[in-house]
Design a binder for these strands. Structure first.
Lengths: 82, 82
DNA sequence: TATTTTTTACTGCTAAAGCAGTAAAATTAC
DNA sequence: GTAATTTTACTGCTTTAGCAGTAAAAAATA
């Protein structure tokens, strides 16, 4: 299921559901406990790859949505790089 | 439409479709040109809010997907904060 | 209740993100 | 073809993310 929602709430909810403490999640994700604390506090000046590490542990996928999105492969077939 | 894809390609594609240069997009997003260059180059150690600024200009939404996602509002109704 | 665990909140430190400027390479336009 | 634009790539600089450590506040547990 796909929904638009702030990261803060998503992380906290999934962490709780996983029965993890902030420190526990941080260790599993390979980040400092401060990152989890800050994210759940609502801080968004967190590096994208750091957030990815956390969401990976929690089994949360990041998707991008736009009207043009489905045109990428079809019109730009040569861009197999990147 | 929703798809899982790397930010790099998404940004470059949408920027081109918008007829913007890297500098042009950077200015509209209020970030440095280096950010656009790095993002399109594939760098992921970019701050989340910085990416948001860029994607906002390009009309790209970030969604989060997980099996638990639809349970958030229902089971955690009091969390209207955050 | 008291005790343990967890969360919040601060610290000083190191590494690096983000910036503007410049210049060369590549692309596009004429 | 040349000229203009755009992209790539590098600078030095300032700000800050992320880290571990500590401690107090809050929450959970016995």
């Amino acid at each position: 299921m796909t929904r638009t929602m702030n990261i803060s709430k998503i992380i906290k909810f999934h962490r709780k559901k996983s029965g993890l403490t902030q420190k526990g999640l941080a260790d599993l994700a390979g980040v400092g406990k401060t990152v989890i604390f800050n994210l759940e506090k609502g801080k968004t000046s967190v590096q994208y790859d750091t957030i990815q590490k956390v969401l990976n542990v929690l089994n949360v996928k990041i998707n991008f949505e736009s009207p043009l999105m489905n045109l990428i492969r079809e019109t730009d077939e040569k861009n197999t790089n990147l």
